[in-house]
Design a protein around this nucleic acid. Structure first.
Length: 340
DNA sequence: TCCCAGGCTGCTT
DNA sequence: AAGCAGCATGGG
């Protein structure tokens, strides 16, 4: 039976940490302060807490996710027959405690796990993930999001208009985090409302398929502010569109073989390859080392002596166990949000 | 103004 | 092997 809403019964799942930890770039947070709070959202004093929900696109589905006491509520713009796409994306079947038990029992890892309770790994579409991380090199996460937003607006397909119930559920007033601190309390500015509505509209596009991007020009892509990454993305799209690279076939390869295939693409080195292997294919042994993770390893595990690049990589490959990629995500998020 | 950002490539030592 | 400039663009 098709429905537009479902409650995913998962525990120990921090939606905010997961959707905002630099693995996916198309999720936007909104504070539903004006929405009548459900009973679950009232704290002990009876004050309505601000429920936070997240808007995003998974394949052709517009999705709104809300953190609930019993799990995650999911709402879609269109009725859904089969919710397996959502279970797959959120990896609701993963028993997080089992994963955490495999982490090394040392102080840095204990601190990171304690600080990022409920952080999960998603399971994304390989092409969207690959394209996103091709665009990620020497870019801040906010800028990666901007580039991808432009890319989807210009080349993605509009996603079906929402049902009336979706529109009805949309909150009347939305507050932006970017609102000036000294703005009058409790007063909404029309500007912030407009930009919020626009934020939601901007999400109404699918991620452009490789066949689509293969037919545009480098200048078209550069217009999305991606700079020197444009030829890399274009070449990757063409390789896939021409059938010279089959992303689905990588699923059958071992980690090293799949990594090797991805690294044949221009602009894809070991770090970007490992991000795709971890976030899209679920190779838990992949351990992407970016500036943040390198900083984490350096400061937390080699505080006095400076460890060389080679030594760091060997340490990363041997110290964190079978779910090293998960451990990496904890270190990354911990470093980025809790340490400086 | 300078430094940095979920890097990669190619050229020098 | 290791170091390093260049690459586009924007935030702090």
């Amino acid at each position: 039976m098709a429905a537009t809403e479902i409650l995913l019964q998962v525990r120990n799942y921090d939606l905010a940490a997961t959707l905002d930890s630099g693995q996916a770039f198309r999720w936007r947070k909104e504070n539903l302060e004006r929405r009548r709070p459900a009973r679950e959202f009232q704290d002990h004093a009876g004050e309505p807490a601000a429920p936070v929900c997240w808007f995003g696109v998974i394949g052709k589905h517009r999705v709104r996710l809300t953190q609930m006491p019993g799990g995650i509520r999911a709402e879609t713009a269109m009725p859904v027959e089969n919710w397996s796409f959502l279970h797959e994306f959120l990896q609701t079947e993963i028993d997080l405690d089992t994963v955490l038990k495999t982490f090394p029992d040392d102080a840095p890892m204990r601190d990171a796990v304690a600080a990022c309770c409920g952080l999960r790994l998603l399971r994304q579409d390989p092409w969207e993930c690959l394209a996103s991380f091709i665009l990620s090199s020497t870019k801040q996460i906010v800028q990666i999001r901007q580039i991808i937003t432009l890319l989807c607006e210009r080349f993605g397909e509009p996603i079906g208009l929402p049902t009336a119930s979706w529109e009805r559920r949309r909150p009347a007033g939305l507050r932006q985090h970017a609102a000036p601190v000294n703005s009058p309390a409790g007063r909404q500015r029309s500007q912030t409302k407009d930009s919020s509505v626009q934020n939601e509209k901007r999400l109404c596009y699918s991620f452009p398929a490789p066949q689509c991007l293969a037919s545009v020009t480098e200048a078209d892509l550069r217009a999305c502010k991606m700079g020197f990454r444009a030829p890399h993305l274009l070449a990757a799209a063409r390789q896939i569109a021409e059938g010279k690279l089959d992303l689905e076939s990588l699923r059958q390869l071992p980690l090293a073989g799949a990594r090797e295939e991805l690294m044949k693409l221009r602009g894809v080195g070991v770090k970007i390859a490992d991000c795709v292997l971890l976030f899209a294919y679920g190779f838990d042994g992949a351990f992407p080392v970016d500036v943040w993770v390198e900083r984490a390893l350096q400061q937390l595990y080699f505080p006095r002596r400076r460890a060389g690049d080679k030594r760091l990589r060997h340490f990363a490959a041997t110290h964190f166990g079978p779910h090293a990629g998960y451990a990496q995500q904890y270190l990354f998020h911990y470093m980025r949000t809790k340490m400086k």
